[in-house]
Design a protein around this nucleic acid. Sequence first.
DNA 1: TTAATAATTGCAATTACGTCGCATTTATCT
DNA 2: AGATAAATGCGACGTAATTGCAATTATTAA
Lengths: 143, 143
Amino acid sequence: MSTFQDNFINILKTNGLSITRQRQLLFDLLQDQDPLSMNELTELVGTTIDRASVYRIIATFEETGIVRRISIGWKFKIELSEAFVAHHHHLTCLSCQLVVPINQEKLESFISELADINNFQPIQHQVEIQGYCQRCQANRNIA
Amino acid sequence: MSTFQDNFINILKTNGLSITRQRQLLFDLLQDQDPLSMNELTELVGTTIDRASVYRIIATFEETGIVRRISIGWKFKIELSEAFVAHHHHLTCLSCQLVVPINQEKLESFISELADINNFQPIQHQVEIQGYCQRCQANRNIA
DNA sequence: TTAATAATTGCAATTACGTCGCATTTATCT
DNA sequence: AGATAAATGCGACGTAATTGCAATTATTAA
């Protein structure tokens, strides 16, 4: 059934890592939600996982390619990697923090082109846009 | 002569801020170098400027539009604002840290388009590409 | 199913990063 | 040059992130 879950277990096993209650819980949280900051993660797990462990687990998740770090403005958040969710970027509302994923083939090819022009071999890239969503634009006009 | 220097002084005066040794030194550093992290800045100035002052000065530089924060990967760095250098993005070499500015009108209009499609009013955006520069690509083939 | 062993976690302590209040110093204005 | 206002340095503080180590938990093989 749950390809996500199988995939998760496989990655852990492949890397010789145990499936622990803590790792499973963090994975579940990331599966259900928009990108989360370390703060949001530690608050969501409350006292069920020690803060130090949250940091260590997210670090191994990064190393094994389960999650990736994305920068929203100049802070960063954690989200499931391309092993689970297709490559994409984000639009973030400066007012209500709404996050909308962007998935545009034209953008991707344009990025590669830019690297080529500068004789760079592109490995990764980030595109983040901040602005106001439709709802918040309306609210701002009222206020 | 130095338009940069004049512009800097003007912005400070316009905002009723003094021209101090510390502010001048930080501005000079940012003028000479690629984007710098807060850490790099505090290390470059060593004991000549207190850490608290570096933070305060960069904060007022941001407020008055002398510098802006950019995200390189998921960290951030400081660079001169558009009052000194045209709006641009960066290509960063993962091996030698070379930073190459990108300035592409097509990219800018593409970004606005993406926001529009999603009914967002775009305010700001970041585009960062990491890869290997020509020289480092060559070195990697040898090794 | 259980014992052995290897990995992981929680806890406490520590470091790093950024901020704040206040006394002293420095720049500006006349 | 002196008065005044602003900025800096210093020390203390709060929060974020990291580390070492003992206790716990997962895995492996009998």
